[in-house]
Computed example of a mutant assay.
Amino acid sequence: MSKTLVQMTAEIIQSQITSKQMSTEEIKAALNETFQALKSLQDAEAGGMLETETEATATVMDPKKSIQKNKIICLECGQEFKMLSPKHLKSHGLTSREYRKKHGLSARQPLCAKALSERRSQSGKERGLPDNLRKAIVARTKKKATSE
């Protein structure tokens, strides 16, 4: 059978009294503080259990603010990452497309920290990707025009 908060509080304070001298006022204050701390822990624990039991995932944070300079915060579980990997999203039963749609992010929004996205963009520019992409698009449109 589990102990009540009052019983747990009494045991904690009894342990404190045996290790140091306390006045009556100190004992009363310690009892009150310990009881309040245990009560708040119990309430937090009960609240946490209710959240995990219900599958309602209320967005606590603005989705646009979840993508920060050096981290991205998963809006499903609250964990911080450099990038939301497909493996992590799969643990929530989502694909990256479903995650973006669920939280109102654009389809082209990278699911990674802004600094990482900027580094990738800069790296691509240094390798000449924008120019090569432009050439490929022009070649494809010419090929499509001649086949019609």
Rank of each mutant, 00 (worst) to 15 (best):
S2W: 05
S2K: 15
V6D: 15
M8F: 00
M8G: 06
T9K: 11
A10W: 02
E11S: 09
E11R: 10
E11D: 15
I12H: 03
I13Q: 04
Q14K: 12
Q14C: 08
S15I: 02
S15A: 09
Q16T: 01
Q16L: 12
Q16E: 14
S19H: 05
K20H: 09
M22W: 01
S23L: 09
S23N: 09
T24D: 14
T24F: 09
E25P: 01
E25R: 13
E25Q: 13
I27C: 06
K28W: 01
A29K: 13
L31I: 08
L31P: 00
N32Q: 14
F35Q: 05
Q36R: 11
A37L: 10
A37K: 12
L38R: 08
K39F: 11
K39V: 02
K39R: 12
S40F: 04
S40C: 06
Q42W: 02
D43R: 12
A44E: 13
A44I: 02
A46W: 00
A46T: 12
G48V: 03
M49F: 03
E51H: 10
E51Y: 06
E51A: 15
E53S: 10
E53Y: 01
T54H: 11
E55R: 11
T57S: 13
A58W: 01
A58Y: 03
T59K: 11
V60W: 06
M61L: 15
P63N: 07
K64H: 13
K64T: 12
K65Y: 04
K65T: 10
K65H: 11
S66R: 04
N70T: 06
N70K: 08
K71D: 07
K71N: 09
I72N: 02
C74W: 01
L75G: 06
G78M: 04
G78Y: 01
Q79M: 13
Q79D: 14
L84I: 01
P86W: 00
H88V: 07
H88I: 09
K90G: 04
S91Q: 11
S91C: 08
G93E: 09
G93K: 05
L94C: 05
L94W: 00
S96T: 07
R97D: 13
R97Y: 07
R100S: 08
K102Y: 03
H103C: 06
H103R: 10
G104N: 11
L105W: 04
S106F: 01
S106R: 13
L111Y: 03
K114N: 08
A115S: 13
L116Y: 04
L116K: 07
R120F: 03
S121L: 10
S123V: 01
S123W: 02
G124V: 00
G124H: 06
K125Y: 04
R127W: 00
G128W: 02
L129C: 10
L129T: 09
D131Y: 08
N132D: 12
R134V: 03
A136N: 07
I137W: 06
V138A: 14
V138F: 07
V138E: 15
A139W: 00
A139H: 05
R140T: 09
R140V: 03
T141L: 15
K142L: 15
K142T: 06
K142N: 14
K142R: 14
K143D: 13
K144G: 02
S147R: 12
